[in-house]
Structures are given as structure tokens and as C-alpha cells.
Write a protein that binds this DNA or RNA. Structure first.
Length: 345
RNA sequence: UGGGGCGUCGUCAAGCGGUAAGACACAGGAUUUUGGUUCCUGCAUUCGGAGGUUCGAAUCCUCCCGCCCCAG
């Protein structure tokens, strides 16, 4: 690879190993570390700078707090308040990492941006770039990249795509690569030590208070503390004792109401999606795909029927449990990501 | 206060003289580069209260308290 490549370094083991690997085949490597304004550990930039120094690559901190707040955090709060369930990691990948950060990388002279994602980019005969699952099935993160496009992918590099997590750990140990002691994985990075609901509540302009919990028959069986603390398919927190557990089936923000049902009420044979994104040519006929409805969903065979420019109905071969509005539905054909949309109902 | 019934964990509920099941809820943990799901663990030294019978009572007896139903 004869390109100048910037690498997004968080301080974690994955991006550290990615940077190390990149040094072996890129023309030149530049380390970038972006901050969101929600960091717990304010020393991280310096620590990451230290890692870059040891790798002997130039380091640039990038403050993306404004963009992060506007494009990730605020939409996250808004989505919860509207009764849907956001996926901030997907928003971050498109708007921040392969958005603002990629722009910053280019301004520094880089032609591509590398990250520690477990995913692969492969060009076809016409040099169009395609997104594929990472080699490590247990770690594959292509789902989170479903809203990227071919143009962006042509500037994306995933050095860990062919590796397993175990291999990454071994390599790090072997080469003496020590990440800044941060935990392997947290929950949502900006929520930190509070619950999601608490985070949303403190950042919400309009407070959502308690409201009724109704069964599918319309019977009121309880009171919820605020719809932003719930998502379709959720069981915990309802506080409605019964012979068997209740799950959230629907959320009505207008009425500030939660509708609950039994586990069997969670299954849907189709789902509607909007904000469609295609990583291949937009199909003009119903498309057979395997759809992931959430990260770590094994995928369900389905047919995508386009109903409008960026709207479609996804019909599953077999009913799927608890598709949640706001979550991404990512379409695969084999290992290749062909498209994605946001679940609406 | 005539007659009948019932009071066991936050909720529902087993138990019927042999030393308190279970489900739901809740809490904590595990898993997880989103939320949710899932999994694991914990959760009544005590059975409305007070006495009594018994080697032994939530289980039998007495009284009291509370609730429900039928009569009035």
C-alpha cells in the first residue's frame, strides 16, 4: 500500500496493533487521537501520544467534541426521548470517525484512515470497495459500519480485518505493545458511570415523567418512570410482577405509554426501515439478504422490498424477536455488507 | 359485630404436625466496542398478633387484629 495513512488511536489494544501493522506496509503513518468531550480520563491524549512516540509515528490530537455532541450525543438523547433506541456507535462511525476525523486526516495529508475495526474492505474488478465481515466471527464489527459507502470505504483501512482477537493479543504481547490501561470494552463510551436513562434525563430539555404501562389488551398494570429508560424487547425495570415476565412490545411517546406483552408477542415477521444506505448499486428488485437487527444478532434471512427512495420493508423468512425502532438493520450477502437502514416499525 | 371464608417474601403461590417449593419483581455479577435480550448468584431463622397442646406447629386449640362474602 503506497499511501499516507492516518490511524485512529484510542489507546486500546486494537488500534495500537492496527497502527503497528500499518507501519509495515503504508508509505507513511500518522497517529490521530480524537476527543469527544466526554472522556473520564483526561490523561489519555498524553498516554496515546506516548504510544505513538514509541511506534515512532507523528501524533496529532483532534478535538471533535463539538461534532461529537451534535452528531452523536444529541441525536442519541433525542432518539430515546422519541421512544426509539439509538445506536450511537453507528452514528459515530459515519459522522465522527469516517466523517470529521477523516476530514482532519486529509487536512494532515493522509489519503486514508485506518481504525481497529474487525472488518474488511475488498475491491472488486472495477475497483469498487466493498465491506466484508472480519475474519474473527466472534469479533466482527462490520455491523457498526453499515452506513458507510463505497467512496468512504475507498479511504478506509482495517488492518485487523484478517485477524482474530487472540492473534491481536498475541501479537501485542510478542511485540511489547502495551495499551494505555483502559478496559477492553465499556458500554456506551459517553454515558460513563450512570445509567442510560439517567444520562438522557440530565441532558433532556423536555422531561419525560412517569406514565402508564398497558398490556396489549389495554389493561393498566403499572407505572414506568419515563419511556426513555426502555426499549422494545426490554424486560427489566417494568416492575410488574406476574406469572411470567412482561416485555416491552411498543413505546408510544405521544401518550407517554409503554405497551407490554409476553415473550411470544415480541416476534415480528417484517420490519420497516428508512434512511436506506447502499454499499452496492441500489437494487431495483426485491433483494434476498441476511439481515442483522442488532450487533451480535446472527442474522435472519429476509427479502428487502423497496417501497420508496430510502424506505423499504424487510420480510423475514422466520419471525424475528423484538426488532427495535431506531436500531440499524444491516443487510448481508454472505460476508459482504450490501446495505443498511434504520428500523421504524 | 348473625353466619361463612381467608390472612405464608414486594406480587402471585406451594405447604395440611417433622423442622418455609416455585414463578414474577428486585439487587449484584457474567457475557457484550450500542441499547435490549440471555445466563449466574442473592433474596421469608420465618408463616397477621398473643398464648396453649406437642419431643416437634405455618400446619391442632383459644383469644385478639385485619380483609372478603352472605344475611341484616
Amino acid at each position: 500500500m503506497n499511501r499516507v495513512v492516518a490511524v485512529a488511536m484510542s489507546g486500546g489494544i486494537d488500534s495500537l496493533v492496527a497502527a503497528w501493522l500499518l507501519k509495515r506496509y503504508a508509505k507513511q503513518v500518522i497517529a490521530l487521537h480524537f476527543t469527544t468531550g466526554f472522556e473520564t480520563d483526561k490523561d489519555t491524549p498524553d498516554a496515546v501520544a506516548g504510544l505513538a512516540f514509541r511506534l515512532n509515528i507523528p501524533f496529532h490530537p483532534v478535538d471533535l467534541s463539538s461534532a461529537f455532541r451534535k452528531q452523536v450525543v444529541d441525536p442519541f438523547v433525542r432518539t430515546y426521548l422519541s421512544g426509539e433506541t439509538p445506536n450511537p456507535c453507528m452514528a459515530c462511525n459515519t459522522a465522527i470517525k469516517f466523517g470529521a476525523l477523516l476530514t482532519a486526516a486529509r487536512e494532515l495529508g493522509a489519503e486514508a484512515l485506518a481504525t481497529g475495526h474487525y472488518a474488511r474492505v475488498r475491491p472488486d474488478a472495477r475497483h469498487h470497495c466493498h465491506l466484508h465481515k472480519g475474519a474473527d466471527a466472534a469479533k466482527d464489527q462490520s455491523y457498526f459500519l453499515g452506513f458507510l459507502n463505497q467512496k468512504i470505504l475507498s479511504a478506509a483501512v482495517f488492518p485487523l480485518g484478517d485477524m482474530t482477537k487472540t492473534e491481536v493479543r498475541h501479537l501485542a504481547a510478542q511485540e511489547g505493545l502495551h495499551p494505555t490501561h483502559r478496559q477492553e470494552s465499556q458500554d456506551i463510551c459517553f454515558v460513563r458511570n450512570q445509567t442510560c436513562a439517567a444520562f438522557v434525563a440530565t441532558r433532556a430539555n423536555v422531561a419525560h415523567g412517569p406514565g402508564p404501562i398497558l398490556t396489549l389488551d389495554g389493561e393498566r398494570i403499572g407505572t414506568h418512570p419515563g419511556i426513555h429508560g426502555f426499549t422494545v424487547g426490554q424486560r427489566r425495570g417494568l416492575n410488574c410482577p406476574s406469572s411470567e415476565p412482561y416485555y416491552v412490545v411498543r413505546i408510544h411517546p405521544g401518550e407517554n405509554t409503554l405497551v407490554v406483552g409476553r415473550k411470544t408477542d415480541l416476534y415480528a415477521d417484517r420490519v420497516r426501515v428508512h434512511r436506506l444506505n447502499w454499499l452496492v448499486a441500489r437494487p431495483d428488485v426485491p433483494l434476498r439478504v441476511t439481515t442483522r437487527l442488532r450487533y451480535r444478532h446472527q442474522g435472519a434471512t429476509a427479502t428487502v422490498h423497496l417501497t420508496d427512495t430510502d424506505v423499504a420493508t424487510v420480510r423475514f423468512d422466520h419471525p424475528q424477536k423484538a426488532p427495535a425502532p431506531g436500531q440499524g438493520a444491516v443487510f448481508y450477502q454472505g460476508d459482504k455488507v450490501v446495505g443498511a437502514g434504520v428500523i421504524t416499525a
